[in-house]
Design a protein around this nucleic acid. Sequence first.
DNA 1: AAAATTTACGAAAACGATTGAGAAATATTA
DNA 2: TAATATTTCTCAATCGTTTTCGTAAATTTT
Lengths: 341, 341
Amino acid sequence: MAVTIKDIAVEMGITPSSVSKALNEKSDVSTDLKRKVRQVAQEMGYKKNMLAVRLVTMKSNTLGVFIFSRTKIRNSESTAYKYLNIMLNEAKKYGYDIVLFSIESSLSENKSYIDLCRERQVEGALFIGFENNDYHLEELVHSGLPVVMIEKNISSENTGCVMVDNAGGISLGMNYLFTLGHEKIAFIKGHFAAELSEIRFSQYRKMMEEKNIYSDRLVFEGDFSLESGYAVGLRISEMPELPDAVFASNDLMAIGVIRAFSEKGIKIPDDISLIGFDNFEIGKYVQPKLTTIAQNFSDIAESAVTMIFNMINSGLHGRSVLLDPELIVRESCAINKKYTD
Amino acid sequence: MAVTIKDIAVEMGITPSSVSKALNEKSDVSTDLKRKVRQVAQEMGYKKNMLAVRLVTMKSNTLGVFIFSRTKIRNSESTAYKYLNIMLNEAKKYGYDIVLFSIESSLSENKSYIDLCRERQVEGALFIGFENNDYHLEELVHSGLPVVMIEKNISSENTGCVMVDNAGGISLGMNYLFTLGHEKIAFIKGHFAAELSEIRFSQYRKMMEEKNIYSDRLVFEGDFSLESGYAVGLRISEMPELPDAVFASNDLMAIGVIRAFSEKGIKIPDDISLIGFDNFEIGKYVQPKLTTIAQNFSDIAESAVTMIFNMINSGLHGRSVLLDPELIVRESCAINKKYTD
DNA sequence: AAAATTTACGAAAACGATTGAGAAATATTA
DNA sequence: TAATATTTCTCAATCGTTTTCGTAAATTTT
């Protein structure tokens, strides 16, 4: 069917090994033959069979990428894709392919992530999002396979992670809110199965407690989705006394809140301030423009790929790298009026 | 390193072929041996090497998917990911893997899409988005490799496509607008390199011309991005006389328009009606809620995968399938006041 | 009990490449 | 010119499977 080096060999009256070496620019073949072989290969439409190459060289040059879609954690398909895109381009620079794994179906097959990786001979695995209750984590950590996770804080010999400094991001936002004179700051938590939900909330709680102004009644359960933000927004609007501000665990929920408040006639930032987390582009187009904490998705993905290649090629251990978030001030926060009284 | 069937064979004092047959549930091996082999394999932590399997069986069980990221056509990373996700799950049902290809890097390597596919032995390729000026199209069509494209209307022996009926979608929106009494309908075109931009615009133009109300001054260039929608919105707001309505080629641009109008004090839908295309979830949360044309991304992706497997397994030819769009009426369109005068 | 059939396993070739060791051809040195 | 060194190619093993064919043993049929 397809033309092989053997075909080229018989065509040229030489051996397959010479063809292989010529095509791979080995030193023990004359430049003249190289040229001829290249030309014949071209003419015959030869394409090397990577399956064979990888089998014999025992190098798959392949990275596995797992994206969690089962529960739509963070509801941010768009960020998953951003990550994926960067990973793809970075991997290509190293000459690696990326094979995608979907979580839901692999679980139904009753194959663990490691099984999938071993079968495909992937040299490393990248995880985008990881659920707290996933019992495969243990296995991953002890597998020996280089693994790096995004949005899940972990580091061991063979597993690393890269994520934004979520606690730092919350601090940035909280301090900004404090500076503006806000004290009754409500918080909308993210999806319970995402580790960063807990991290963000903990930092919020810690900072509120330090000021002795923490109250359970100020925290609301969300799941990172627009809808959940909207639902919480409605509930907040019905509180006997409005909070000074609300800190949403992500932009999507913040936008849901904007919608709810708008329907209830609550003005942002006049009646209440609002801050999000992520810095999605859409935040610049909602009314009011959303003040938020930015995380650089490209940097995260790039660091993840860099780390995994360091682990694969240089045998480095997994590390936990935290990237700096940034406060993006736009229009959804204002000075607390009560403060000026 | 890793345990192979040979290892199992020596361990059990049988031959590799028996192990292979046992593991593959072949009929010419006793159920007793099968059981034993399974157990030993399990104990020894055997994982079959798919590279070897695929090489010998001459079946890669792999689909290639190409996503165009070079020019951020449609600016809809999120839809690309939605497509990808469905494809992944559908492919898994057939026992296929998906390897991802990034367009930009492949071009820099000077390897055509077909080269990449042939090397990896992929059995079919899925394209998400395709640029008008991509000169590789010709090669694809004549490659013999099963290919199906999303958002690019083409069909030949080995290439098919699936997309929403864009012209029909525009008709839906235009007729709705006409019913509401609008005549001066502005149109924001999508990215010039996307085929569907032309399709959508053509239908708009056709319907306007049928009513003899087409004017070049009512059409604006966009590129599917929020920013471009915003920019056009600003320009529209500065027109000597406001149009009755604006039809944006996608929701993102419509949201940009909302922002621009809001800043200029133009009320939607009181002063002007607005309609989008895509039915992104965010449309329900902007103010006013966006009326739009819905396309079902899941259906599109599923159809694409189904088609490619039909081509791969049953040798069916590529077809061009058009899915029905739907008008989603929300709040951004109202009856034309001039009409009621 | 002999013949025919079935069952269960082994031997070996294959898939398409790579690679180190060895052989042949050519070039270099003494 | 002979000996040595260098270049250039061939040989053959290998990667981990699958699969066809062959054959001995077990089973069934006559």
